[in-house]
Write a protein that binds this DNA or RNA. Structure first.
Length: 419
RNA sequence: GUGAGCGUAGCCCAGUGGUUAAGGCGCCAGGUUGUGGCCCUGGAGAUCGUGGGUUCAAAUCCCACCGUUCACCCCA
């Protein structure tokens, strides 16, 4: 027996109620803020990720699905979607449009990791990106929009963690100071942190080990080492957030996993934490487009994991609209009525009525059971008598009331019932 | 990559060495020769994750593998 590959899963119809709900909230949010949809391929040139997300991060070093196609071209299943969006922005000359260009996406991303709570090898991201504008007001708007997204879903028990990690001018200086601070404690560091010291020093700050946290507490804080421009930008973001009454927590230990971030970084953290809990995160990436061969182009964006959102919706036991049920179920007796029923079903569907017709020549009782379990609003019953009278029985499945309706009027009656 | 827990019908699960592996949900049929939901009756559905071992005897004990869940790492 075949199974879905490790870390992947099928989304069965009942589950799709959640997915539809989240996707509809996401698209209407984007409409509200002026973001337009963009779809990019599931796989890309591997270099698109290795160059941008950058070596030193686990995503590139060990988690990418990389393969050669038959021509020897090195491809990768997309590990995230910001780089593909930037690639499309450059490829199609979107920098010629009025800036910023605001785009959103919903789709799968792939990382080869050990699956666990809220973490999968194929997961789905909803994200939006504003390209071509450096204004800190846009950072604030992206954060506000992220917050509105979760509120519109009915999720409000989260905090927004905010930090600035500087730019290519000021960050190297900070990293140097940070390394110096840690180099005097190397004997007390956990093995992971020893590796981080050389590989990814920013990550030292959020190690969970208590011994390492002691050292992190006394570590120099990045906001104290920002250059004047980054400082002003960071303050402006906070000013605009304040103006919109968006609560946030400054967290100087917040860093993001991807290497391309500059200045503003933020994460949405649920109050009730469990394992992989971050609902979403984002920030500014002013160097990414240039590193892909474009002109220096500032940009800011956000991405959320749909699986984690849905886990939270279930956890909060929020009522999610059910998937639509059929308007009518057609039951029949004997072959002559079946032929007529097929004809009626076809005509009703042309009139925009969702119809399921009984199949398999079950007893009428069996057909009615099926109508019930499908949740059909009405049952239509066709037998010899009805055919000779040119009518059909319309049964309201909720009340159990039923009466014969002339065949010519049945579509109109059901249309009324739809509303 | 490291560590821990768990694998019994589609789903939830009882069963810790001894007859045909129990129950609930769901599914199918009948009770109503043309009518669903409630109720009653019956039925189908399980190589007890896979392979090996211990034993007269294994779902049950041991080993390996696979899968899965959780944690670390990392991230959405």
């Amino acid at each position: 027996m075949h199974k879905a590959p490790r870390g992947t899963f099928d989304i069965l119809p009942p589950e799709h109620a959640y997915w539809k709900y989240v996707e509809e909230k996401a698209t209407s949010l984007c409409q509200l803020y002026g973001y337009q949809p963009l779809s990019t391929p599931i796989f890309e040139d591997a270099q698109l990720f290795t160059k941008t997300v950058a070596g030193g991060t686990d995503i590139v070093d060990k988690e990418m699905y990389i393969f050669e196609d038959k021509s020897g071209q090195e491809l990768a299943l997309r590990a995230e979607l910001t780089a593909p969006v930037c690639r499309a922005y450059l490829e199609h000359g979107l920098f010629n449009l009025a800036q910023p260009v605001k785009l959103y996406y919903i789709g799968p991303a792939f990382r080869y990791e050990r699956p666990q709570f809220g973490r999968y090898r194929q997961h789905h991201q909803f994200g939006f990106e504003a390209l071509g504008e450096a204004d800190p007001a846009l950072d604030a708007e992206v954060i506000e929009m992220s917050r509105q997204f979760f509120y519109s879903l009915g999720l409000s028990r989260f905090s927004i963690q905010l930090n600035s990690i500087g730019c290519k001018l000021c960050r190297p200086g900070y990293l140097e100071v940070l390394r110096q601070h840690y180099s005097s404690y190397t004997d007390h560091l956990c093995p992971d942190c020893k590796a981080r010291l050389v590989k990814n020093p920013l990550r030292l700050l959020d190690c969970k080990k208590t011994s390492c946290q002691k050292i992190a507490k006394t570590a120099p804080k990045i906001p104290d080492y920002l250059c004047p421009e980054c400082q002003l930008h960071f303050q402006s973001v906070q000013k605009y957030l304040g103006a919109m009454s968006i609560p946030f927590q400054l967290n100087h230990r917040l860093v993001r996993g991807l290497d391309y971030y500059t200045r503003t970084v933020f994460e949405v953290e649920p109050r009730e934490k469990r394992g992989q809990s971050t609902l979403g995160g984002g920030g500014r990436y002013d160097n990414l487009i240039e590193s892909l061969g474009g002109k220096p182009t500032p940009a800011v964006g956000f991405a959320a994991g749909l699986e984690r959102i849905i886990l939270n919706l279930k956890n909060r036991k929020l009522d999610i609209p059910a998937l639509p049920k059929p308007d009518a179920f057609i039951a029949y007796l004997e072959e002559e009525a079946k032929i007529e029923a097929m004809k009626i079903a076809s005509e009703l569907r042309k009139a925009g009525i969702a119809v399921i017709i009984a199949t398999g020549d079950k007893s009428l009782r069996g057909q009615m059971r099926q109508a019930n379990s499908l949740g059909s609003a009405y049952a239509l019953i066709l037998g010899e008598q009805e055919i000779s009278n040119q009518n059909i029985i319309l049964r309201d499945m909720r009340t159990g009331e039923q009466k014969p309706i002339p065949l010519a009027e049945i579509a109109r009656m059901l249309k009324q019932g739809q509303k």
